[in-house]
Structures are given as structure tokens and as C-alpha cells.
Computed example of a mutant assay.
Amino acid sequence: MLSYAFRRVLGAIPIALIAITACFFILRAAPGGPFDGERALPPQIMDNLRAYYNLDKSLFEQYFIYVGGVLRGDFGPSMSYQDFSVSELLAIGLPFSLMLGLVAFVVATSVGILAGMISAVNQNKWPDFSVIFVVMIGLIVPNFLMANLLQLLLGVYWNWLPVRGYVPGSIPHLIMPILILSLPQAARVARLMRGSMIEVLGTNYVRTARAKGLGARLVLARHAIKPALLPVVSYLGPALSGLLTGSLVVEQVFALPGIGKYFISAALARDYGIVLGTTVLYMGVILLLNLIVDILYAYLDPKVRYR
């Protein structure tokens, strides 16, 4: 298993390099620059800024300088936040973004698995139809629209929860963001769990267990849940990465102190360092999560053997 994990890490290096290269050149090809504004800077100041951030060099020289810095763990200075490096800004916002994404991940996974099991056990009955209705709402309505609706209802009209901002240690400020993040992922997990559980409940070994007189709870606990989780586990890596990247928009909508605050403003200001640094950071998280999911899949499915 360790050798397999090592090979997966080595195989991820070319993918990471391709992603960094694509993001670097796409960002540079976008119109505008970090120092373009309504009021043009004097030529001497512009030349000094371009020299300081290596923008006076050719595009390929800039690329190799950036990749060399990334290999050393240096994402360069920020072009829009004075006296801050990209690594410092990411270190400030990352703990909150990770906390928000991980809590939403636990909520979405738990609710999705439970809802999928209830829907599968009660196939074509009213609990099944109710779960499908909620799932469709979570999949159809975009995050930003659902966030605005909840802000209007729960925050403005009913005054149950704070609408924006964050006070350290305040749980009410996190309820709406976590709900918005977890709802679509819980809907997808519920769909996967429902389909997988229905398939497992129709297998021969489950019917044999029922014929031997085992109760419905024992059949689910001993024979159905573990194989039914295989498609869900395969999805958990992309789900968590989707929650972490999706939190960028949610953090901006709710004015939360995560990476999203820096990423959105940096994208609008053409701050190449923060945009690329955030992209590289989340790419590394996604690759790590996919590796963990592969290892968990081998644990759950005894037929899988990595050699």
C-alpha cells in the first residue's frame, strides 16, 4: 500500500506541473494587468514596479522563476496587498477555509448517507419521494442564489441568524455558510447512496441473509452498508475538494475571513501571485484527497488489490 501511495504521488507531479503551466499562461493572457487603473502611473514608477515583480522579463523567464519559487515553497509577493507575501496571506485565510470546508464535508456526508439509506429502504414510498424532492432543490439552485435567499429569510425577515461577517467563536455566524456549502454535496451523496443501496439490497447474499431470518437492521449493518459505500467513497475526494473551492464564493457572499476574501479581490485586481498561489494550493489538496480516497476504497473493497 505504501509503494502504491508513493507511485501515485510521483504520478501526480506531471499533472501538477501541467496545471501550474496552464494557469500561469492563461492568467497572463487575460487582458489587463495588476497595475492598470483609471489613473495611469508615471513611467518611472511603472518601470520600477515591473522590475520588482519580474514583469519586465520575458514570459518564459517569469514562468521558470515562478516554478522555481513554488518548488521552494515561495509563491512570491502579493501585488495588491502591500508588504504581504502570498504565502502569508494563504496562511492567514487557510485555517478558516479548511475549518468551514471540513465541517460542511462532515455534515454533507452524514446527512447524504443517512438520507440515501432512508430513501433506498423506503423505495417508491413517501420518504423516498421527499428525499428526492430535497435532493433536486439542492442540485438545481446555485449556491449564491440559495445564499441570498437564506440571508433574506433567516437574516432580514425573521432575524434568526446574522447575515454577514464573523465573530471568532460564534457558531450562529457559521450556520448559514455551512448549510449553503453542504446542501448540494449532501444531495449528490444521497443520490449515490440511494442507487448503490438499492442495488446491494437486491443482491443474492442480502436475500440469503434475509431468508436466514436476520432482521432488517442487522442486514443493513452487517451486509449492505459497507459495499453500498463504495461509490460514495469514490466521490468523497472530489466532494471535499468541491467544498473547499466552493467556499471561496460563499466566503465572499457572507464576508468571512477565509481565502475567498483574498482570492476574489486578487482576481479582480489581476494579482497574479494570489490567484496562482490559491490555485496551486487547492490543486495539491485535491491530489492528496484523491490519494486518500483510493486507499480507503481498497480498505472497503476486499476485491481491490494494489500491486
Score class of each variant (00 low, 15 high):
Gly155Lys: 13
Asn148Gly: 09
Gln151Gly: 12
Tyr166Gln: 08
Gly165Glu: 04
Leu152Asp: 10
Leu161His: 05
Arg164Trp: 08
Leu145Cys: 03
Leu154Lys: 04
Pro168Lys: 12
Trp158Lys: 13
Met146Glu: 02
Val135Leu: 15
Arg164Met: 12
Ile140Asp: 08
Gly169Thr: 14
Trp160Gly: 07
Leu150Cys: 02
Ile132Gly: 11
Gly165Met: 11
Gly138Val: 03
Leu153Lys: 09
Leu152Thr: 01
Gly155Ser: 07
Ile137Arg: 11
Leu139Gly: 12
Gly165Thr: 00
Trp158Arg: 10
Asn143Lys: 07
Val167Pro: 09
Tyr166Pro: 01
Gln151Arg: 09
Gly169Pro: 07
Trp160His: 08
Leu152Tyr: 13
Leu152Cys: 07
Val141Gly: 06
Val167Tyr: 07
Leu150Thr: 03
Val167Gln: 06
Pro162Leu: 08
Leu161Cys: 13
Gly165Ile: 04
Ile137Phe: 12
Gly155Ile: 08
Pro142Met: 02
Tyr157Pro: 00
Arg164Gln: 10
Leu145Gly: 01
Trp160Leu: 11
Met146Leu: 13
Pro142Arg: 05
Ile137Ser: 14
Pro168Gln: 11
Gly155Met: 08
Leu152Ala: 05
Val134Leu: 14
Leu152Pro: 15
Leu161Lys: 07
Val163Arg: 10
Val156Ser: 08
Pro142His: 00
Val135Gly: 02
Val141Lys: 00
Pro168Glu: 10
Leu139Tyr: 01
Leu145Arg: 03
Gly169Met: 09
Phe144Asp: 00
Phe144Gly: 10
Val141Gln: 01
Tyr157Glu: 04
Phe144Ala: 06
Ile137Thr: 09
Tyr157Met: 11
Asn148Met: 10
Ser170Gly: 09
Val167Ser: 06
Val134Thr: 15
Phe133Ile: 14
Leu139Glu: 09
Ser170Cys: 04
Gly165Gln: 06
Ala147Tyr: 04
Met146His: 04
Trp160Ser: 09
Val156Phe: 05
Val163Ala: 08
Pro168Val: 15
Pro142Leu: 02
Val163Pro: 01
Ile132Ser: 15
Phe133His: 13
Leu161Gln: 14
Trp158Glu: 13
Val167Cys: 00
Ile137Gln: 08
Gly165Pro: 12
Ser170Thr: 12
Ala147Thr: 06
Ile140Thr: 15
Arg164Asn: 12
Tyr157Thr: 15
Arg164Glu: 04
Ser170Ile: 14
Phe144Ile: 02
Gln151Asn: 06
Tyr157Leu: 10
Phe133Tyr: 14
Phe133Cys: 10
Val141Tyr: 02
Asn148Cys: 11
Pro168Ala: 07
Val163Leu: 05
Val156Tyr: 02
Gly138Lys: 03
Pro142Gln: 06
Ala147Met: 08
Leu161Glu: 15
Val135Glu: 15
Leu145Tyr: 09
Gln151Ser: 09
Gly165Asp: 10
Asn143Gly: 13
Val156Asp: 07
Tyr157Ala: 03
Ile140Phe: 14
Leu154Val: 04
Arg164Ser: 13
Pro162Val: 13
Leu149Arg: 00
Leu161Ile: 00
Arg164Tyr: 14
Leu149Asn: 03
Val135Tyr: 14
Ile137Asp: 05
Leu153Ser: 12
Val163Tyr: 03
Leu150Val: 00
Leu139Thr: 06
Val141Asn: 00
Pro168His: 06
Met136Trp: 14
Pro162Asn: 10
Pro162His: 11
Val156Ala: 12
Gly165Asn: 08
